[in-house]
């Protein structure tokens, strides 16, 4: 079972995660089918910016984060923004959408000028997240755990970050055991997705370069 304190932490994180999301009117724009390459580029850039702003607002709610060294806060966010973005996007592609929406979104991404070698791993990742049928709680916790990775470049106070990350990992571990009693490997699988995210993150800078050139 979750202790009272852990339950409170979980509720708090989930509420913050649900509250801080991309503005709906921007998300709606994505579904308008009329777009040329330039509009597409601008919209995806705007979305990415909004993603980061929302991520920062969510992160400010993580207990203890604001007490970390200010430059460490930036290093953590900078190191995790891309991974958190992929995690959030994965939700869009795995949630049941009204008919045709997923196809429009996928088409928009495929026509964005990003080369196929980067697109394929991205959709493979979305698929592997979809297979886990993650709950909102798992998404919120996994995002918080990703942000609180002590081994990001330029983080000085690694132990302070670890002290914030560990309770999140423990809540996620227990939550998985409660929700998936017949799947003892579920927690390990979730953590495995973090490794996949690292790979996507690693290729992201390369992807940006190729996109800009295109």
């Amino acid at each position: 079972e979750l202790s009272q304190e852990q339950q409170a932490l979980l509720s708090f994180i989930v509420e913050a995660y649900q509250k801080h999301r991309i503005p709906q009117d921007m998300a709606k724009k994505l579904l308008q089918e009329q777009f040329n390459a330039e509009e597409n580029f601008l919209l995806l850039t705007e979305m990415a910016t909004s993603h980061v702003q929302v991520l920062v607002e969510f992160t400010k709610n993580i207990p203890g984060f604001s007490a970390l060294d200010h430059e460490d806060q930036i290093a953590l966010l900078k190191g995790s923004a891309v991974e958190a973005m992929f995690l959030r996007s994965a939700q869009v592609f795995t949630r049941k959408q009204p008919h045709g929406h997923t196809e429009v979104l996928e088409d928009r991404i495929r026509k964005s000028g990003i080369s196929e070698e980067f697109i394929t791993p991205m959709f493979t990742f979305y698929k592997s997240i979809g297979e886990l049928q993650m709950t909102q709680e798992e998404h919120a916790l996994l995002t918080a755990i990703t942000i609180l990775s002590p081994d990001r470049p330029y983080v000085k106070g690694q132990q302070a970050v670890e002290r914030l990350q560990e309770p999140m990992l423990e809540v996620l571990r227990r939550f998985c055991a409660i929700q998936h009693p017949l799947e003892p490997q579920h927690f390990a699988r979730l953590l495995g997705r973090l490794t996949e995210l690292r790979t996507l993150n690693h290729h992201h800078a390369e992807m940006l370069t190729s996109w800009r050139m295109s």
Binding site: K60, I74, A81, A205
Partner: peptide
């Protein structure tokens, strides 16, 4: 890397609470 300059800027602004900018 240059590709990260924009990102850091957005993060710093958002951390300071200047979301409107």
């Amino acid at each position: 890397p240059a590709s990260n300059l924009g990102l850091e800027d957005i993060i710093r602004k958002a951390l300071m609470g200047n979301l409107e900018e």
